[in-house]
């Protein structure tokens, strides 16, 4: 808990200490991916259900947030609740279908991928609702007095204009981390972990595995949708590829697997690590070879494989083992 207060405080003060600009942008991206990762972690890390299509939740959240403003002029502060609750409902529906029919392991991964693809096609195919492939562009608010009301910080005065969305995603991340931390300490959390470890044994002990997984996928969807809300408010734009393409699904699973599955800190640790490495690689290798794209993702993929091979509990597990050794614990973690 003390560790988390330090992390929260450090992240809150970062824009003041680092000044705005590149480093804050880096942290903002790290936090955004950490939120996607936390969403994935609830279902994948704690529940053992590996989704390959979490973009479906990011995209649904983003589109609901964008379309309620775009089509009906609803305030972003109201639409965001619809975005989060609506996506949780979509998560429950997908979970209901998948888990009712007993899909586990690779089959669950495949069906989530298929749902993301189906939503991708739907978003492209009904321009009268979604504006199709062109995407939804929200109107820019230029009135500084309405910055807060429109949830747009571009003209809100220099500090807020530069750091408003950093604090938005920081708040979302801390909320998601706190929710996960709380979940670990409830009956629901204990039952979810039990289902991950051994579904048969869990059922024998009175756990309704179906309902527990349904709860987890809804929470996962809600957290991921919040990242979608942030994205839309920051960029005022969403289109089918960004919303439902595979890249968001992949980013969502990188961070927790590398950072440490089923730990509260894993997604943040993993996101920080890969983006740190990514930035370093772009600055060195990428620069040396003429700023070509792809370097960071080559490294991410390689790190993912190495972590899967050698660090099944991710960086958090490595850290715990090192800490135990340093403090003279028994060391066989």
């Amino acid at each position: 808990m003390a560790g988390w207060l330090i992390i929260a405080l450090a992240l809150a003060l970062a824009p003041l200490a680092l000044g705005s600009g590149r480093w804050v942008e880096f942290l903002e991206l790290t936090l955004f991916v950490a939120v996607l990762g936390q969403g994935w972690n609830v279902l994948g890390g704690y529940g053992g259900q590996y989704s390959f299509g979490n973009a479906v939740f990011f995209g649904t959240g983003a589109y609901v947030q964008a379309l309620l403003q775009y089509r009906f002029g609803i305030s972003p502060w109201i639409s965001l609740w619809f975005a989060i609750a609506g996506t949780a409902a979509v998560g429950a529906a997908i979970g209901w279908l998948s888990f009712r029919y007993g899909l586990r392991g690779s089959y669950f991964a495949l069906i989530t991928l298929a749902f993301a693809e189906a939503f991708h096609v739907l978003a492209r195919s009904f321009p009268s609702i979604t504006e199709g492939g062109r995407g939804v562009q929200l109107a820019l608010n230029q009135d500084p007095d309405r910055a807060l009301a429109t949830f747009q910080f571009n003209f809100a005065g220099s500090f807020l204009a530069e750091n408003g969305f950093y604090y938005t995603i920081l708040a979302v991340f801390l909320a998601s981390a706190f929710a996960t931390w709380r979940m670990e300490r409830t009956r629901f959390g204990a039952q979810l972990i039990a289902v991950r470890e051994n579904e048969d044994a869990a059922q024998a002990l009175g756990i309704d595995a179906f309902r527990v997984k349904l709860g987890a996928i809804s929470i996962s969807a809600a957290i991921t949708a919040a990242a979608g809300v942030y994205y839309v408010q920051k960029y005022l734009f969403i289109e089918p590829g960004i919303a439902f393409g595979t890249s968001k699904s992949v980013e969502a699973l990188f961070a927790p697997i590398i950072g440490g599955l089923g730990t509260v800190v894993g997604p943040l640790l993993g996101s920080f690590f890969i983006h740190g490495v990514g930035e370093a690689a772009k600055a060195t290798i990428g620069q040396a070879l003429g700023d070509r794209p792809g370097v960071d993702l080559i490294l991410f993929g390689t790190i993912l494989i190495l972590v899967l091979a050698f660090l099944p509990r991710g960086l958090a597990g490595l850290w715990a083992a090192l800490w135990r050794r340093l403090t003279g614990g028994d060391g066989n973690a």
Binding site: R185, R187, A190, Q191, E197, A201, G206, I207
Partner: peptide, 26 residues
Amino acid sequence: QPFAGLSVHENIAVGAHTRLRDRDEA
């Protein structure tokens, strides 16, 4: 069929949660 990744205490607590909602009580 133990929950292999959990401690003995956590394993037994999963059973206790069947009747007890509260984590500390379990």
